[in-house]
Design a protein around this nucleic acid. Structure first.
Length: 418
RNA sequence: GUGGCUAUGGUGAAGCGGUUAACACAUACGACUGUGACUCGUACAUACGAGGGUUCAAAUCCCUCUAGCCACCCCA
């Protein structure tokens, strides 16, 4: 293989691209129904944006970013996630001045320098949505019901919603401290990673997969019991609204986020079908982010879903389209007529194919079959003489005689295809 | 960054030191003389990830490299 794609960067071939389009179109339809508008932001931003939003000490910033210095000596990086850029644009263009309640969605490639594995690539794609300016739990519920509806519309039962609250800058430090106290007594039982986490990010120890750690932390204090009054009420109302809307969810008080900007509500759509990549979509509230990036003190909440992962869940469902009609021909003169008919039908909105190279009738019919054409027609001397031909429905072989004019065929096809 | 596994044609794969690299699918053309799906025939890897080495002889053994996959870390 002389030249190949960069490691972790994949080609999306036509059959799979069709599945992706289905995902994207469903997202657009559902999100726009909820009043979200698309925003398109660059795939590259100043490095500082991500350091400030995602968090300097975060794995993403520490070791996973595609960062380099451009010819103007600016440090730039390929976006590892979408929220930061969208919020930067929201602030830069003062969208909040028009309406602090912005509902934005985006889709596109993200880049993270990690070892590729199932459902995880260096260039991957996310579809995300952000809602700003609303502190009320109604916003949380709205975003969650929208996400749930998306999965229902796409035809997936599997991912289930898990929610949690991480508290706010008022109550989280206290919880952290309480957790540290608990962990300190059991440091000896923890794996090496968790010992390290004890210092850097004790919450991470809660979702460690090492059996010993799971056991050691089984009785650990729960965030939910350490929420301040405001956060507790907020979380209670989120749950209340979810119940009002009949949205299924599970509380997972051990759910942790990888980005620093999250506050209060966090959530994931999880599945057991993707190996170790259980999160298909994830997000949460980020009430401090906008002001942290130099904007007004507005709250926000949003999520992102991994398109590759959703596509994997959709499996091999076929979303490709098939021709309405295949025209087979017998001779050169007939090919001209066929071309004219095909051209007219294509301009009329039908999907039509014919043979390109004057192959045998047998070959042409095989091709019609392979392309899964709904109808086929053979045009030879007899048909030209008669001015009509029999159109064969490939599924059952039944035929119908139709005059060989664009309008007659159009009428026939519209009725036949319904 | 760490670990495990795997690398044979368009695809799935046989092959485990010895003349022409099974078989299947896919593809192309044809048998069925102007009509597909079934059946049948023919064609289709000077080539076994790359580079070295061992040997009279290697796709088959050894080494190095590269790539892919899966897992850890972390994450969508």
């Amino acid at each position: 293989m002389a030249l190949t794609a960069v490691k972790g960067f994949n080609d999306i071939l036509p059959d799979e691209a069709a599945r992706w389009r289905h995902i994207e179109q469903t997202a657009r339809r559902v999100f726009e129904q909820y009043g979200f508008g698309e925003i398109r932001v660059p795939v590259m931003e100043k490095t500082e944006l991500f350091c400030r939003s995602i968090g300097d000490a975060t794995d993403i910033v520490e070791k996973e970013m595609y960062t380099f210095v451009d010819k103007g000596e600016n440090s730039v990086t390929l976006r590892p996630e979408g929220t930061a850029g969208v919020m930067r644009a929201f602030i830069e263009h003062k969208l909040y001045a028009q309406d602090p309640v912005a509902r934005l969605y985006y889709m596109g490639p993200m880049f993270r320098y990690e070892r590729p594995q199932k459902g995880r690539y260096r260039q991957f794609h996310q579809i995300g949505a952000e809602l700003t300016g609303v502190t009320d739990p109604l916003a949380d519920a709205q975003v969650l019901t929208m996400l749930t509806l998306f999965f229902r519309e796409i035809g997936l039962q599997e991912p289930t919603l898990q929610i949690n609250s991480l508290g706010c800058p008022d109550c989280r430090p206290a919880y952290r401290a309480a957790l540290r106290v608990y962990l300190e007594e059991r440091l000896g039982l923890l794996c090496e990673d968790c010992k390290r986490r004890y210092d850097t990010n004790p919450l991470r120890a809660l979702d460690c997969k090492v059996p010993g750690c799971a056991e050691a932390t089984s009785a650990a204090p729960s965030v939910l019991e350490h929420l301040c009054t405001g956060c507790d009420e907020h979380f209670g109302l989120v749950r209340h609204y979810l119940e009002l809307s009949g949205t299924d969810y599970r509380i997972n008080s051990r759910m942790v986020r990888g980005l620093d900007y999250y506050t209060r509500t966090t959530f994931e759509m999880v599945t057991g079908l993707l190996g170790s990549q259980s999160a298909v979509a994830a997000g949460g509230r980020y009430d401090g982010l906008i002001s942290q990036l130099g904007g007004p003190a507005l709250p926000g909440i949003g999520f992102a879903m991994g398109v590759e992962r959703v596509a994997l869940l959709l499996g091999s469902q076929d979303f490709s389209t098939t021709p309405d009609l295949f025209i087979a021909t017998m001779g050169q003169g007939e090919r001209e007529l066929a071309f004219t008919l095909m051209d007219g039908l294509l301009k009329g909105g039908f999907r039509v194919e014919m043979d390109y190279e004057g192959k045998s009738l047998k070959s042409q019919m095989r091709r019609a079959d392979k392309l899964k054409a709904n109808y086929s027609v053979v045009i030879g001397g007899n048909e030209v003489a008669a001015g009509s031909a029999s159109f064969k429905r490939m599924a059952d072989g039944s035929t119908t005689g139709v005059p060989l004019t664009v309008s007659a065929i159009q009428t026939f096809l519209s009725g036949a295809l319904r």
